[in-house]
């Protein structure tokens, strides 16, 4: 087992190296000059030159690449051209909001997706199955940014069930920062009002973002359940009567969860993708907003930093999922 883990971590290192090469490559295809973004329309030539020097943009690309890798090895992501701050500081500031939103959306996806998948499998080809599959697919087929606006319009503006955009009520002061996750911080501070407020603000964006993954997870759970449910022992049990069937369904569920695990890890990626769009609609100060703003202003160091960190996050999550998977299913242990 430990050999397997070590191997996985080693290959992850390799992947991340590849990721940094790829991000650097993409960033340097850009034909535009990011310096102008930082300095704006009225910049003078001497200011532009000074900037280029300060950020090492006047040096040849291969040299820039070597410095970039060298700095990366030291955990230095460079300085953002747009915000003029170390990219690492920026990411540190925006990361918790996305982790919180992504986590909540994940929870939504699991809570809705797994039961829907199970029920769909149990009632295969009945009305519930069709409806849940159709609903799930439709959820996965909507432009997220439109859905977000519609949900805000209905649940915040018309019905007033949920608070508006942002992570926290504008006029309240947020709890003391410990983890950066407002929900956790509020809980740690034993501040019930703050907790409810943070949860309320989280609900709509998490639902918007989670809907896509819900569909993917429901679909996978359904097919994994079907696979198990039609195996001989289940059929036998089924023939014997309802009571035993119930036991078996639970048993089947356990087995069906093994393949579902991988998809849960992978769906985290779609959450990060969706965050780019959801965060704008809900004015959520997270990595997605940062990534968009950086990309639009061609801020190479920031774009590289954010893609790198997102890739790292995603890879680590998948590694964890794989390790759990390996624990559950002895067959893959040496795979």
């Amino acid at each position: 087992m430990s050999r397997y883990i070590l191997g996985r971590i080693a290959s992850m290192g390799l992947v991340l190296l590849g990721v940094s090469v790829l991000t650097f490559f993409i960033a340097h295809v850009v034909p535009a000059d990011p310096v102008l973004v930082a300095l704006g329309e009225h910049a003078r030539d001497d200011q532009i030159e000074a900037y280029r020097k300060a950020y090492g943009l006047d040096r040849p690309v291969p040299i820039q690449f070597v410095t970039y890798l060298g700095r990366l090895a030291r955990g230095d992501l460079g300085v953002s051209i747009r915000t003029r701050r170390p990219v690492a500081d920026d990411l540190g500031e925006f990361m918790p909001a996305t982790v919180e939103l992504g986590g909540a959306a994940w929870l939504v996806a699991l809570l809705l997706g797994i039961p829907a998948g199970i029920l769909s499998a149990v009632y295969k080809d009945r009305i519930f199955d069709h409806l849940s599959r159709l609903g799930a697919l439709a959820g996965a087929s909507l432009p997220v940014f439109w859905l977000g606006l519609v949900l805000l319009g209905i649940f915040y503006y018309r019905l007033q069930w949920f608070p508006g955009p942002g992570r926290f009520d504008i006029v309240l002061s947020p709890p003391q920062v410990r983890s950066g996750l407002l929900v956790v911080d509020a809980a740690l501070a034993r501040d019930g009002a703050a907790l409810r407020n943070a949860l309320g603000h989280l609900a709509l964006p998490a639902l918007t973002l989670g809907l896509f993954s819900t569909a993917v997870i429901a679909r996978m759970t359904r097919s994994a359940m079907l696979e198990v449910l039609y195996q001989d022992y289940v059929r036998t049990a089924r023939a014997k009567g309802l009571q035993e069937r119930r036991v078996i369904v639970l048993h089947a569920l356990k087995n069906a969860m093994i393949p579902t695990m991988t998809i849960i890890g992978i769906s985290f990626g779609s959450l990060l993708s969706g965050a780019v769009l959801t965060e704008t609609i809900f004015a959520w100060p997270g990595l997605g907003r940062y990534a968009t703003a950086s990309a639009v202003s061609l801020d190479f160091p920031a774009v590289m930093g954010v893609t790198l960190v997102v890739a790292l996050l995603y890879t680590v999550v998948n590694l964890l999922v794989d390790l759990i998977y390996a624990r559950l299913d002895p067959r893959v242990r040496y795979g």
Binding site: T23, I26, G269, V306
Partner: peptide, 10 residues
């Protein structure tokens, strides 16, 4: 290793 929209955006 990249979430698809983020890579596509870059």
């Amino acid at each position: 290793a990249f979430p698809s929209l983020i890579l596509a955006m870059a």
